[in-house]
Computed example of a mutant assay.
Amino acid sequence: MNHQYLFQLENTEWMSNNVRDRAIKKVHAIDQKIGYPTSNPNVLDPEALRKYYDAVVISNTTFFENKVQVAHFETRQAWNKLGKPTRRDEWDMTVRTVDAYYNPAGNEIVFPAGIMQAPVFYDPSVY
């Protein structure tokens, strides 16, 4: 977390001490999802990916059937979530997506690897 922003928050005069302390605790509690998900599935582990997508049958000759297979898989995944607690380790965005978001309800900030590609949004030589 950027210490400059915490310093600004700690020195904000228009907030009461109680509200300021709660804001600082919330900043420290933000779930930071940066780069790649490492659970459900761990996209950096080929065996975990194989296991996660085991029920999906893909052919290199049947585009439409592949789309149907993926749609069935995603529908089963969605139905399997019903009635279960929210998984805080799941990402609502793919790794390759060039976007980022803050989810206030989940108190999480997500920067997938797609947006971290130089030089468009992030350039490591600048930092």
Rank of each mutant, 00 (worst) to 15 (best):
M1G: 13
E47A: 14
L82C: 10
Q32F: 13
M15P: 00
W14M: 11
Q77D: 11
F121I: 01
T86N: 09
H3I: 09
P85H: 07
T38R: 14
K67W: 11
A113W: 00
K26E: 11
V98K: 13
V98I: 15
Y122F: 15
E13V: 10
A71Q: 15
Y53H: 04
Y53G: 01
A113D: 04
T61E: 10
L44Q: 14
S39N: 14
V126K: 12
T86I: 11
T38L: 14
K81H: 07
F64I: 15
V70G: 03
P46G: 07
V98Y: 05
N18I: 08
P85T: 09
V110N: 00
E108P: 00
V43S: 00
F63A: 12
N60I: 06
L6A: 05
I109C: 03
V120E: 15
G114C: 00
P46R: 13
Q8D: 13
R22S: 07
R96Y: 13
D92C: 04
R22E: 07
A48F: 05
K67F: 11
Y127A: 06
D92Y: 06
F63V: 11
D45F: 09
V57I: 12
R22L: 11
W91N: 03
A29R: 10
Y53L: 08
Q69H: 12
I24F: 04
D31F: 03
R20H: 04
V68A: 14
H3N: 13
D92K: 05
Y102F: 15
V126G: 04
N66C: 05
N80V: 03
F7Y: 14
K51I: 08
Q117C: 02
T38V: 14
F121L: 08
V19C: 04
I30T: 02
H3D: 13
V27E: 03
P104C: 06
D21T: 06
E10Q: 15
E108S: 10
I109R: 03
